[in-house]
Design a protein around this nucleic acid. Structure first.
Lengths: 181, 181
DNA sequence: TTGTAGTTTCAGTATATCCTGAAAATACGA
DNA sequence: TCGTATTTTCAGGATATACTGAAACTACAA
């Protein structure tokens, strides 16, 4: 019986640990390709695959990072809404747990990136359009045309994402899939 | 008549130049939030709003950057397919022009990010799932469950994006919009 | 109020990333 | 073939970003 053979259990623990490490490391790499700092992505990965909430010290220990680093990135993740802090009664320290529902995670990320990056980009574009408004030259016409096209596109994207993310339900996209040829 | 008043024309040129600079600068900032290096985003912005193709020297001059920098980033943009090089007959130097159709730009970026980042991420996840395959502990079960959920989600996203981007036509998304509540 | 566990901040340092400039390589016309 | 215009490469320097570690701060219990 596997469950009671100490050697087999130890071997399994090692394999799991390796798999977890792989996941955390690689998720960090993937995150940095999308403009998220490596450590923040790694902490997030760690919390996603950890059933129970962890303390700052546990995160530090697992990832071999300093207290300051762990602290700041946990705060940042909390700011995104991807991580919640949990206070257990009778205990003084703070625990952290990740939102584990993949669709909810997706919605949070989309909403935040919309708010932090897409909206500001649209504002920048509008500002540029305004600055060139009324200019007569052909170069100005070309500039205005391009920036307007970009602006309209981003507004459309913003609208689509809003709708996709609105219901907090994962049913819409799979359903819409049927219609997409 | 505005067109023939030298002073008015000069003033307009200044305003346009300011608007163009603003756009290039801000686009660089936006790009870096999405994991694209600032200069590459700026060169891309510059080429988008410039009606005719530019040489490496012109790009260097406009953005005040070195030859090496301009060269490498132009190559990178060419690699993404966002910029094409144009050779004019009788001339020896290379000109560069950006794809200007916004929807095509979007399709190119989505295809490339799918290929470079989403696919590899899916492979990483599959690898992690395999590594933990068959392990008995509850922690292992939790790990497997989470990574599988993530993997399935990303495969779905990959599929949706493939379909959105397949036709090279901007008609599908606006059409699908009607169905999204 | 004092002691202590826990949290927060941040100056200084380390590291990753990007950029420069010049030399080497290449392409092409004479 | 040689000379010149153009492109390519890349070592070294510059800059931006992230991380550490320790001190300051806070909250709470005794």
């Amino acid at each position: 019986m596997k469950e009671t053979d100490p050697q087999a259990n130890a071997a399994e623990a090692v394999r799991l640990e390796a798999a977890r490490d792989e996941f955390v490391t690689q998720w960090g790499t993937i995150g940095s390709a999308w403009g998220i700092n490596r450590t923040m992505a790694q902490i997030h990965a760690l919390l996603i695959i950890t059933p129970d909430a962890l303390t700052t010290d546990e995160v530090m220990e697992e990832l071999k990072i300093s207290r300051g680093n762990a602290h700041m990135n946990l705060r940042e993740l909390t700011g995104w809404g991807l991580v919640r802090s949990v206070i257990r009664k009778g205990e003084r320290k703070e625990y952290f747990e990740a939102e584990k529902d993949v669709w909810k995670m997706f919605c949070i990320i989309v909403r935040e990136r919309k708010r932090r990056e897409i909206r500001p980009a649209i504002n920048v574009l509008k500002d540029c359009i305004d600055r060139a408004d009324g200019l007569q030259s052909p170069e100005a016409a070309s500039f205005t045309w391009q920036t307007k096209a970009l602006c309209e596109f981003m507004e459309m994207a913003d609208g689509v994402l809003s709708k996709v993310v609105k219901s907090e339900q994962s049913t819409i996209v799979p359903w819409a899939l049927k219609f997409l040829k």
